[in-house]
Write a protein that binds this DNA or RNA. Sequence first.
DNA 1: AAATTCTTTGCAAACGATTTCGAAAAATGT
DNA 2: ACATTTTTCGAAATCGTTTGCAAAGAATTT
Lengths: 339, 339
Amino acid sequence: MDQVNLKKLAKELNLAVSTVSRALRDSHEISPQTKERVRELAEKLGFQPNPHASSLRQNKSKTIAVIIPEIENNFFSQVINGIESVTPNKGYHVLIYLTHEDYNKERDILQLLRNGRVDGIMVSVSNTTTNLDHIEAWHAAGIPLVLFDRTSEDLDVPNIMTNDAEMAFKATEHLLKRGCRNIAYLGMTGNLSISNRRKAGYLTALEKYKVPAPPQIIELTAKDYINRDILKQLFEQQPRPDGIFAAIEKFAVNAYEVCKELHLHIPQDVKVISFSNLQAAALFDPALSTIIQPAYDIGREAANILFKIIEKKMLMPYEKKMVLPSQLIERASTAVTGK
Amino acid sequence: MDQVNLKKLAKELNLAVSTVSRALRDSHEISPQTKERVRELAEKLGFQPNPHASSLRQNKSKTIAVIIPEIENNFFSQVINGIESVTPNKGYHVLIYLTHEDYNKERDILQLLRNGRVDGIMVSVSNTTTNLDHIEAWHAAGIPLVLFDRTSEDLDVPNIMTNDAEMAFKATEHLLKRGCRNIAYLGMTGNLSISNRRKAGYLTALEKYKVPAPPQIIELTAKDYINRDILKQLFEQQPRPDGIFAAIEKFAVNAYEVCKELHLHIPQDVKVISFSNLQAAALFDPALSTIIQPAYDIGREAANILFKIIEKKMLMPYEKKMVLPSQLIERASTAVTGK
DNA sequence: AAATTCTTTGCAAACGATTTCGAAAAATGT
DNA sequence: ACATTTTTCGAAATCGTTTGCAAAGAATTT
């Protein structure tokens, strides 16, 4: 079965290809009668314009790419959901690429897409990314681009993120107010600005409350078994941390696992709070206090801003650095205990 | 900055466009020397062939589409991860579409893609899909297609799934062996074959063990608050169910929430087991017994099979209906209690 | 009535890569 | 030295859609 194309329609209707094309795009220079004839036959034969021909001719692909470190993470799933809440209305398609937290993959993917396959990209950089030349080069080439969550303030590129430093401060403050005096921070390796923001919030809180114990910044990895080893060591130190602030959901899970193994009780022995978008956090044993990021909104807003750039509209100043607030939900894992 | 294309390379090298094209595709009819010259300049100028021109000419897009009901679900995230473990090696790109469990969206998306935008699709049908004509039509048009998880045995289309009926049987049996006598099944509305398989497993177990209480098939929805209402009613019935088998992870979470609200104790008052791919299930209060589906493998295998079809290779018989086994993990939520 | 605009359509040239066909040049065989 | 094959390359057609321009006819103005 060969596809029905403009030529076939034109022949059938005794019209020129150009006339058919214009009729279908509702051009003003085609009479209503012929428009109707064309539309009717197109409908009847189920004509669908070939996207590659269109893209080639118009030099636009009606496609955007979303480049994220991983997908087995509620946060990124929700972001994608937010993105997808705008793309179909715009008639756009969404390509997904995973970097698996690998800078080289990230660079290669950006390189791979620099050929017109997409009209714009949305990136959340990997934690092994220290050199931002590939992002810079993309931006310099004038192709629309936004960064979200894992952003970079150095580049003059739209950033969509949450109030990381502020919430990290609040989380640490929350632990302090619940009586913790020896709080460890569990963060990602690497030198991402998001990590730095969260770390900074943690440190600021310790400083403001004049905590005598030195800060403990623990850097964890993508591998659960390594993280559990590191955490075991952490909990066997003296003095043992009495509070854990996990900057990543996964690390809170690791901490829970290790506490269970070492028979440490949450929140009696150690209180835990974490950045997390897991609905089931409330069902944990004990229920996990969380900082919920507006993932869906981040995705939606990032997509909206990207489309503004694609459509060459001016961005409002607040759209260049957009900060959507997170929410701290207090649960049993940071409750005050009798002890 | 205008793109570098074949024409520019050809002019620079004093060669014909066709020669450059052939050189880059490593054609045998180009001398090693000119190949080297061409490659060198292409490298230097960062030449990237325009994918739309290629796709138009070759009538293939190097792109596949993944069409799923939702993405905020560990199972589907893991499937995507599995798919992505294959696609880059094949030089393929992945488009994502969400149906939000809406048959009309699903039909429209398939329609939208029937124009050469993709070389094949992978579908997990929505639960509001009763009519499979759109899938049938796609398949009849000869465009590569595989179904996964939410499949249909009626159609002669490759299916990749898990052993739903068997595991549903085992889950129910497990509850029975732990002393439950009044087990409710929480499933999805709709008439999907996956639901039917799981339901059948549940019923077979009840029958085999000659349970006197009538089966209770509860159909839940996408909305949490509705589900909680239904479950509240369920638990206020007499006799109250002493076992819950959730066919969907989300419904187990709803059940936990309602039990907490009604001060019912798991596993003393009611035992719970669920199909689930949540790593954190072990951290629930109490830890949730789960049937873990091989989501990653399902994605990987489904992608491999799709590529076999795209490459017009013959499928092995077992590849037409591939069943990857799930695993039952027993945890505290189905433990035998003193009572 | 002639000159002008306006409306509607067609022709042909793009877009950039691939591929068929053929021609020239080089290598081989007789 | 000539014929034949092989190697290497170029010209041009092609994929399907869009668009600048021309042209014909209709409508309007002078």
